[in-house]
Simulated assay, not measured.
Amino acid sequence: MPKLSVIIPCYHNEANIPLLDTELVANKSLFPPDVDVEYVFVDDGSEDGTLAALHDLRKQYPRQVCVVELAGNVGAYNAVVAGMEYATGDCLAVLAADLQDPPALLVDMYGYWKQGIRLVIGSRQDRPETGLSRLLSTSFHWLMRRFALRNVPAGGFDFVLFDRQVATEVLQMRERNSNIFYLMLWLGYPYVNIPYVRRPRRLGHSRWTLAKRIKLFVDSFVSFSFLPIRLISVVGMVLGTLALLYGAYIILMRLLGSPEPSGWSSLMVVLLVVSAFQMLALGIIGEYVWRGLDAARNRPLYVVKEVTEPLS
């Protein structure tokens, strides 16, 4: 009997757990009768009643629900890695606890996996976002497709079903400060993309802050692209060429006896531009160096406080 493990990272999702209960139970009836489904809930250091709600859910479904309690908040992507480690299915899926991604799509994704597709992606064809949030998301995915991973779906994704082999390879990498879903693409397996429209959040408010979005962008771009380092070299060469040309111009004016260009303001503008570029370059190099240091320290991605496994 094939087994599907659905990993659901939870952070301050107390109000959504009862809705998850209803939707997941209803969704289970859509799968073929020979499919065994387990749900791996990972509490990412929630400070509300999320953990208690998860344990209440497990009491209702002791053979299907696994609860992984992390010691502290490590971020949704590291929580997904923790869920992958404790999932026991032949294939695994990641589902958001806020139910903005439709669980019913898992049935179609599972069907592709049965056909031998090791990676099935649900990409966002549209999303309930407006203004700055929508602009940032669109820009992020365009930059990733243009300069990092060419096979990233246009709308981005974090709703995915993948084979046990993919999970094993990602766990072996133990990569930190990265994008767990883009790592799956980086492996190079052909994938099927199922576009869908993301639903509005029903309860609570998103914890996906602007600071977290910026960190995700930096982590993703630095992990999968050398463009920032290459840009430093290109801009440095351009500034160096301009400096040589300007120096040659000054020497030529001196040899011809013409008055040399003067002006404190212009000198300060050049100095400020070059200094700003140097500081930016140091910041970009520092991002790469810091990631090397973080990897060398080899600290764990997460600390598991307690695991309540399904009854056999």
Rank of each mutant, 00 (worst) to 15 (best):
Y61T: 04
A154C: 14
F221M: 03
S133K: 11
F31P: 07
P18H: 05
G283K: 14
S275G: 12
L239C: 12
F157L: 02
L149T: 06
D43G: 10
H141N: 11
A148I: 03
I180R: 08
E47C: 12
L119T: 13
R199F: 03
S178F: 06
P300A: 13
A52G: 12
C66Y: 02
S220K: 09
M84P: 01
A97D: 01
V42P: 00
P200F: 05
R202P: 00
N193T: 10
S5A: 12
E14G: 11
G156T: 03
S258Q: 13
L280N: 06
Y112W: 14
V289F: 14
D126M: 12
G122A: 10
I194L: 11
V235E: 00
W186D: 09
P128A: 09
F221P: 01
G236Y: 04
Q278T: 07
V107F: 04
T22F: 10
M279L: 15
S220A: 15
T209P: 03
L106F: 10
R146K: 15
S133R: 12
V289R: 13
G156W: 03
G116F: 09
L280Y: 09
V120F: 08
S178I: 10
H205Y: 08
L54S: 06
I284Q: 03
P190A: 15
G131K: 02
T241Y: 06
S262W: 12
D219M: 14
M184D: 02
A281K: 01
P200N: 07
N27I: 08
F147H: 12
P259G: 13
S266K: 14
K114M: 13
Y302G: 01
M173H: 04
Q100K: 11
L280I: 09
L105C: 07
P2E: 08
R199P: 00
L135W: 06
P261M: 15
R134Y: 08
Q60A: 15
E309P: 08
Y196Q: 00
D44G: 08
E85L: 04
A52V: 12
D44W: 05
G111P: 03
A52P: 01
D98L: 02
V80I: 13
V269W: 13
K28E: 05
V107W: 00
L256D: 08
M237T: 07
D108Q: 07
V40D: 01
R199K: 03
V270R: 05
E260I: 15
E306P: 04
F224C: 10
I121C: 05
F277E: 01
D163Y: 08
A96Q: 05
D44S: 10
T138R: 06
R297Q: 09
Y112S: 08
I117M: 14
L227C: 12
L255E: 05
P195Q: 11
W186T: 05
G111E: 07
A93S: 12
S29A: 14
M237N: 06
L183W: 02
L57N: 04
A52T: 11
V152Y: 04
V304T: 05
E175N: 10
N298W: 03
V222S: 11
Y249V: 13
L19Y: 13
V160C: 14
L271H: 09
L311N: 10
L210D: 02
R174A: 15
N151E: 10
I251D: 00
A52K: 12
M268C: 11
Q278R: 08
A276V: 14
V303F: 07
A79E: 00
Y11Q: 03
S29E: 02
G236I: 03
V197G: 09
N193S: 11
Y11S: 04
